[in-house]
Write a protein that binds this DNA or RNA. Structure first.
Length: 870
RNA sequence: GGACUGCUAGCUCAGUUGGUUUAGAGCACUACUUUGACAGAGUAGGGGUCACUGGUUCGAGUCCAGUGCAGUCCACCA
């Protein structure tokens, strides 16, 4: 079959993915082999594939494919997360565009829309992963709101409630006025924000005197129930026990004292608004202050504010500032920058708000989960995240898990008319467990659970490890091997999965966690939708091919650091594909030219002998790099093995002279090496490798690269490797001399080698001849001048024949070399003549320096001899 | 404010317990080559006082301290 000029990625991708699916190569069932399990971090149903997913899933696919060819039963589980708040926001927006307000719908009606939306868009991201070549076990696709999964979530809630790990309490929470729900601390992003610090005048009751108070949130003054000063602050001693009048609404509130107030910040006088600030709330509790919440759940002012009722909080702020100014109550404003909390999902400023929510008492779960990481039962790559994990775990706070949303697992708590709480996974369970409730008027809690309250069960619940504990699958696949995820969700997800795993399986959920870097653009900016600097991955795959995109992102992905991604790395991947493709074409061309059956002894084929050992050497390196999760370097090693060692050296070495046939044995070896190379590269670039593998030979049904098993790595013969390096060195040096002396490639030379050991060169004489275009090779010293001399090591190579050697060029080169080695020798001699060095350095280091010295001397001798001979 | 990480060629990165040459690779760059696998190529070349300042040591890119710059995470100062 005639091969295309270049690799046609589109056809190959479609064909091979379909072929692999047809043969169920991705699907895994428990068997005698060791499992290798990865659970995919489930992307949000709202998501579309971006560069982060590309990186993350490429890494997972590499690990899975490598495990598969290393004889493991590889199982990679896909799925999606219902993403409570993000999805609900999308659905609300979709409805709004249709002219439907969420508030006008019943819960059931809304959920119907939400499920429709999920069915329509929820699977897109998984389909996109197929384009990337991900070898996921699709039969295992799980959704965090699948019926069984749902029940496990409410089951876990019930269990934790019964153990007393979950409680309901009225506390300050982070309120998202846009999504109208509570958020956990982790869902609040703090950002530096410029604000106006307003200095306000609060009049002392029954006096003309004023006290100054600074605030960045003047719209909350209507919730003030005190002004607080430090008890020792001399400026305010005379005001202790007095009252002040809150501006605009003229509420009379007391001046209280507390050491919490910083005397040197602002004016040293703090307005206390217990309903709208966590610290103020604590102060309020301590001093028994009234809590006046002036905001509605959507962030508008309510009746308790008395003024600007119904106005949005920031509009109200402006108006209040203006009114205060007009009334002379605003003394000044200063620009002030501080950290302000924003909702991770809706990016609106979060309001501290007092409300009744459900909480997990994390102290009950934290210890085993901390221990397994400290003991390194679970290993983090890179290791620096261990400290981060530890710090968070040691300072853990209770987890607010209730959300005022409809999309998600509804909290399985029911209230009777007296306000008693009953908790059970389902209503049926409840009736069964508490028969007295059958006849009660029960009302289920309106709220949903935080998304992460379901995804923390992921590593075991995808195998039904909670709903059917002890089933064959969970026993076989759990603990999983590697978790590959972004460091951003170490607290949201990783830590909580460890807790859930330890609590419910009494075992770690995964043995190793590989944290990927953040994908940044060329300017180092984080890729994000809002910046619009995130390229469309599907377009890239279409343009360069999935293999090239995988190559591109992996080659620029240093272990444990962020990666700066640039489209040109895809070009490098494409060029590499093309290089491989052309090597294949060369092999096929040789075959179609016919093979020569002429015999040759093993010793005649130095090239294959060398490459065999070079391959073993590379394999050893790659094995080690994989162990350390240095995937980028493993890829670089393979890249150079294929491009430099196989294509540039090996294939050139075995290439038959033009018009001649290649010897059959050599050809067979070259094909076998190509198979090995494709096998090594396959985890990184699955499509082209499978395609090439099938072009190399006729394959039987089921002989596919994706399942071909690796051989044991053999130790390389270092002597052979050294000989190979010598050969390369000599070729390079002579080629260099040829160029410098302007010899044309066509001009053949005669090579004379002067060496103390001719046997060094004899094994690869024929290769050398071909590579430097030499008609003949002799050994010995030159009889006359006029040749070009090249020194490699201490051996001399004379290029003779019909040439005009330019003595000056050679002199320049030699003098440069001599200067270098003289300098080098000087530094070594300096070291060796230093008595303290001789006294203190290890003997092997001294020996080494001595060897360096004698080597350099010998080299200098050779160079000087050569110079003199000119 | 606290903690962590990084700073090596134009760019992205290696450099493993301090001594294997007077610091490497890949891209990019420059020159030359060009009908026999591949111009998406080949051959060669230029390019770095290893962020800075001190210190330890016979010896520092590597260890220590400080400084600077960048980034990440954490923290309730109005």
């Amino acid at each position: 079959m005639e091969l295309n000029k270049t690799f046609q990625h589109k056809e190959a991708e479609e064909n091979w993915y379909a072929h692999w699916m047809q043969h169920s190569y991705f699907s895994s069932k428990p068997d005698q082999r060791d499992p290798y399990t990865i659970v995919m971090p489930p992307p949000n149903v709202t998501g579309v594939l971006h560069m982060g997913h590309c990186l993350n899933n490429t890494i997972q696919d590499i690990l899975i494919r490598r495990a598969r060819i290393n004889g493991k039963n590889a199982c990679w589980v896909p799925g999606t997360d219902h993403a409570s708040i993000a999805t609900e926001a999308k659905v609300v927006q979709m409805l709004r565009e249709k002219g439907i307000q969420k508030g006008s719908l019943s819960r059931e009606e809304f959920l119907k829309y939400a499920w429709e939306w999920k069915e329509k868009y929820g699977g897109i991201i998984l389909q996109q992963l197929k384009k990337l070549g991900c070898s996921l076990d699709w039969d295992r696709t799980t959704f965090t709101m699948d019926p069984d999964y749902y029940r496990s979530v409410t089951g876990v809630f019930t269990d934790l409630y019964q153990k007393g790990y979950i409680y309901r309490g009225k506390r300050m929470i982070n309120w998202d006025v846009n999504a109208k729900t509570a958020l956990s601390d982790e869902e609040v992003i703090r950002k530096e924000t410029k604000q106006q610090l307003c200095f306000l005048r609060y009049q002392i009751e029954g006096s003309e005197e004023y006290i100054q108070v600074a605030t960045v949130r003047p719209e909350t003054i209507m919730g003030d129930t005190a002004v607080c000063v430090h008890p020792k602050d001399e400026r305010y001693l005379h005001l202790h026990g007095k009252n002040v009048i809150v501006p605009l609404i003229n509420r009379v509130v007391p001046i209280i004292t507390d050491e919490y107030v910083l005397m040197d910040f602002g004016t040293g006088a703090l307005k206390v608004t217990p309903a709208h600030d966590t610290n103020d709330y604590q102060l309020g509790l301590k001093h028994n202050l009234e809590v006046i919440d002036v905001l509605n759940e959507d962030g508008t002012l309510n009746e308790l504010a008395q003024i600007y009722i119904g106005e949005e909080r920031f509009k109200a702020r402006k108006k209040i500032i203006q009114e205060l100014q007009e009334k002379g109550l605003l003394l000044k404003t200063e620009e002030y920058t501080s950290e302000v909390g924003y909702s991770e999902r809706t990016d609106t400023v979060v309001e501290p708000r007092l409300s009744l929510q459900w909480w997990v008492d994390m102290k009950k779960l934290v210890n085993p989960a901390l221990e397994v990481v400290l003991k390194e039962d679970i290993r983090f790559y890179p290791g620096k995240f261990k400290n981060l994990y530890r710090h968070w775990m040691e300072n853990i706070k209770d987890w607010c898990i209730s959300r005022q949303l409809w999309w998600g697992q509804r909290i399985p708590a029911w209230y009777d008319e007296k306000g008693n709480i009953y908790v059970a996974p389902t209503l049926e369970d409840l009736h069964q467990q508490y028969p007295e409730t059958v006849n009660l008027q029960l009302k289920q809690d309106e709220d949903c659970l935080d998304t992460w309250f379901s995804s923390w069960l992921w590593p075991f619940e995808v195998f039904k490890g909670y709903s059917q504990p002890g089933n064959q699958e969970i026993v076989y696949y759990y603990p999983t091997n590697t978790l590959v995820t972004a460091p951003e969700i170490i607290f949201f997800w990783v830590a909580r999965m460890v807790m859930a795993g330890m609590e419910y399986k009494k075992e770690i959920p995964f043995r190793e966690v590989y944290f990927t870097g953040i994908v940044r653009d060329k300017q180092g900016r984080k890729m994000s939708k809002s910046l619009g600097n995130s390229p469309d991955l599907l377009e890239l795959i279409d343009k360069y091919g999935a293999d090239s995109c995988r190559f591109g992102i992996m080659i620029s992905s240093p272990a444990g650091n962020d990666l700066l991604w640039d489209e040109s790395s895809n070009e490098q991947g494409r060029n590499f594909s093309n290089k491989i493709w052309n090597a294949l074409k060369l092999l096929r061309m040789w075959e179609s030219n016919g093979l020569s059956e002429e015999n040759e002894s093993e010793n005649d084929d130095f090239a294959s002998l060398w490459f065999q050992n070079r391959l073993s050497e590379a394999r050893t390196q790659i094995d080690q790099l994989f162990k350390e999760y240095r995937l980028s370097e493993a890829l670089k090693t393979i890249y150079s093995l294929i491009w430099d060692d196989y294509c540039s050296w090996y294939l050139e070495w075995i290439k038959p002279p033009f018009g001649e046939k290649i010897k059959s044995e050599r050809y067979e070896k070259a094909v076998a090496f190509a198979e090995e190379l494709m096998h090594l590269l396959h985890p990184f670039m699955p499509f082209i490798t499978e395609e090439v593998y099938h072009h190399l030979r006729q394959r039987k049904e089921g002989d596919d690269l994706i399942i071909r098993q690796s051989k044991k790595t053999e130790n390389p013969d270092n002597l052979i490797l050294q000989r190979g390096n010598l050969l390369k060195e000599v070729i390079t040096a002579i080629r260099d001399a040829r160029t410098q002396n302007q010899l044309k490639p066509k001009d053949a030379i005669v090579l004379l080698i002067e060496s103390s050991d001719h046997s060094l060169y004899q094994p690869f004489e024929s290769i050398l001849k071909k590579q430097i275009n030499s008609s003949d090779i002799h050994y010995g010293a030159p009889e006359a001048k006029g040749s070009i001399t090249v020194v490699v090591g201490t051996d001399k190579f004379y290029l003779q024949g019909n040439i005009n050697a330019d003595i000056n060029i050679q002199k320049d080169t030699l003098l440069k070399d001599i200067a270098y080695y003289e300098g080098f020798l000087l530094s070594v001699e300096k070291k060796l003549s230093n008595e303290r060095f001789i006294q203190n350095a290890k003997p092997e280091v001294i020996d080494l320096e001595k060897k360096k010295k004698s080597d350099a001397e010998a080299k200098l001798n050779s160079l000087r001899e050569t110079l003199n001979a000119l």
